[in-house]
Write a protein that binds this DNA or RNA. Structure first.
Lengths: 219, 219
DNA sequence: GGCAGAGCGTGACTTCGTCACAGACACGCG
DNA sequence: CGCGTGTCTGTGACGAAGTCACGCTCTGCC
């Protein structure tokens, strides 16, 4: 098991692997799994572990009382739930939700180790601060996007980003929560794109037909 | 001058003063002044100094191409431009604007010192990380607010928060940028509040007339 | 007084969110 | 196979909010 951890760290977290921290992580961290749909962190909670994601993706989002959602960002393999780190280190409450979108594997680092390594390892500090800083900038960028750009432009952008082999295999509902909008509104915009010949629509799937046309609508 | 720095640090940054860092700060930091309206940091810039604000307030905001603005937060005496810190430490671009709202005095810490102290002082680490974490959580909370609450509720909240002796001495334009809205919309809502007897309106000034009524509208 | 600029009021229009409802499709089960 | 149930999508009606345009009223200054 320990061998597995160090191999994964070497591959996905090169910054850490290059340092003397590797042996420490190897000795003290454990791997965890969270099934798709499982919660990683809840709003207002104080988390006990810092997860370094090695497989799968985690969606971090805020939610209104009425159930409306806005996706803040996704955590990919090689990244970490920096909100957790930020809250642990800065002693603040976790202000959002994080759920596993797919089955997730992660290396779980104990709170006490996170703290210790902050004090003892320059590589660890650089790693954690880098993640936090980039996320902070990313969230602010997202806020700009939500506040200033029109939905049709953001939707075109989103489709181009999320497409895999020309398809976006998501429901209008899922797209709406990612964009911070409402399902009905997304449906209407998608319909308009279809009528303009830029996409075709099927149940739970959008197929891109005219990439250049979509790019032209990104605004 | 050096004496001034250490006195100010002791008063406004108790966390730092309690540590052995005080002498260091005393020796190496300098005080700076920025006049009202001056830029502290620009979007996309790499900043050279970390300012610890000792007097005045700094407004941090994002801006659209068309000039619309949303205030992210304000920096009060005893706080710092943590976005700067975050960017320095995490090697990311500054994603917003920061301008002095009033005349501002600050203790400017050189980038190299920020880095050095991160490595050598536990007190400094705790101080900086705490600021970053709280701001991060605050910005996410602000995003929730902007996305999910209605403008009339946010306006009522804002007036109650911003009131000094029953008055809010700001133009509709300023209120709109703080709320991330448009001047005309704010004017309409204020007019409605006036017609309901909750406030009275004058040029560049809103006078609160019915606190309980306003609190009832916070949603 | 007269003028320029800032601040405010207001109507018309567009975009977006909310609500409601209906049709279309997937899937399991008797 | 037919049927029911739940998910997904299309659409109209409406309200909230942003945009644009214009005009009026202050204020300060020459």
């Amino acid at each position: 098991m320990a061998a597995r951890v160090s191999e994964v760290v070497t591959e996905l977290f090169p910054t850490l692997a290059a340092s003397s921290l590797l042996a420490e992580v190897d000795a003290r961290a454990q791997t965890v799994r969270v099934p798709a749909g499982g919660f990683i962190c809840m709003e207002g909670e104080a988390c006990q572990m810092l997860p370094l994601v090695t497989a799968g993706t985690v969606r971090v989002f805020v939610q209104s009382d009425e159930g409306r959602e806005v996706t803040l960002y996704r955590i990919q393999p090689g990244e970490s739930c920096v909100l957790t780190a930020s809250c642990l280190l800065g002693d603040a409450d976790f202000p959002a939700f994080a759920v596993a979108e797919t089955d997730v594997r992660a290396i779980a680092v104990r709170l006490s180790d996170v703290q210790t390594w902050m004090d003892t390892s320059e590589a660890w500090r650089g790693f954690v601060l880098g993640l936090i800083a980039r996320r902070f900038a990313e969230v602010i960028g997202r806020m700009e996007d939500l506040m200033f750009r029109r939905l049709d432009a953001r939707l075109a952008d989103y489709l181009l980003e999320a497409a895999v082999e020309g398809h976006v295999a998501r429901t209008h509902e899922q797209i709406a929560t990612d964009l911070g909008s409402a399902r009905a509104v997304v449906s209407r915009h998608l319909k308009a794109l279809e009528q303009d010949g830029l996409v075709t629509l099927d149940r739970s799937r959008v197929t891109l037909r005219d990439m250049a046309g979509l790019r032209a609508r990104r605004g």
